[in-house]
């Protein structure tokens, strides 16, 4: 026993070893999700009445400052604007927005290779690309004279307004009515936004379309 103790005495403190700590480090790995969650979707007639504007927002409730300036688009995630021109809720046209190396690339509107769950990109369908705007700088806008498409990508004020907390209290049975005045849960916060303005002529020209936005991961 004494000998053992002597032996033990040497390495007794070798408890902070390299991989012991590393194993702890790997204990709680991140779950990557979240970068593809869509928070909001808008579609409306543009300032130029010949155009329709699509807005998709991701990553809600960003605090001003570093939380916003360090927010980035996941470059493995495509934002796909789906457009149904014949009222069957199946996309006839898509506009695909894909971020890469500080730019957002916009493809379409074009008829996709396939509809539904999976998408590929037709590189020839590239309509425009725009530098992803930096927080604190001016909005970078691309305005393609060839396709007539305008594009923006980057942080914006969250345009949504809603007393989400009180709504949840009502649903949970903790409250029976909204407060007056209410409290805008999204006030003073930012989102990562993709805005694309497209000539109506590229969407069928007249009548109605059905539209929805999807996030798809590579």
């Amino acid at each position: 026993m004494k000998k053992l103790k002597i032996i033990l005495g040497v390495g007794l403190l070798a408890v902070a070893g390299y991989f012991t700590v590393a194993a702890d480090h790997i204990d709680a790995p991140a779950v990557m999700g979240g970068s593809s969650d869509i928070t909001d979707y808008f579609a409306f007639q543009g300032q130029d009445n010949n155009n329709i504007v699509f807005v998709a927002n991701v990553q809600g409730l960003l605090a001003p400052g570093s939380a916003t300036s360090s927010a980035t688009f996941d470059e493995n995630v495509m934002i796909e604007f789906n457009i149904d021109t014949n009222a069957d809720a199946v996309e006839d046209l898509v506009i695909q927005a894909v971020p890469r190396d500080g730019k957002m690339y916009f493809f379409g509107p074009y008829q996709p290779n396939s509809t539904g769950i999976s998408s590929t990109i037709k590189s020839e369908a590239l309509a425009t690309s725009v530098n992803i705007s930096q927080y604190g700088g001016a909005a970078a806008i691309s305005n393609s004279s060839v396709s007539g498409i305008k594009a923006f990508a980057g942080p914006r004020d969250d345009p949504f307004f809603f007393d989400f907390a009180q709504y949840s209290e009502i649903i949970a049975g903790n409250a029976t009515s909204f407060n007056n005045p209410g409290s805008d849960t999204f006030a003073g916060t930012n989102v990562m936004s993709i805005v694309v303005e497209v000539p109506k002529a590229l969407l069928g020209g007249s009548g109605s379309i059905n539209t929805w936005v999807e996030s798809k991961r590579k």
């Binding site: 593809s36 979707y41 995630v77 539904g116 998408s119 590929t120 999807e214």
Partner: peptide, 14 residues
């Protein structure tokens, strides 16, 4: 821009 992209999330009406 190659590769296949698979649906994760979608939205239309708020």
């Amino acid at each position: 821009f190659d590769g296949t992209y698979t649906l994760e999330d979608q939205m239309a009406r708020p």
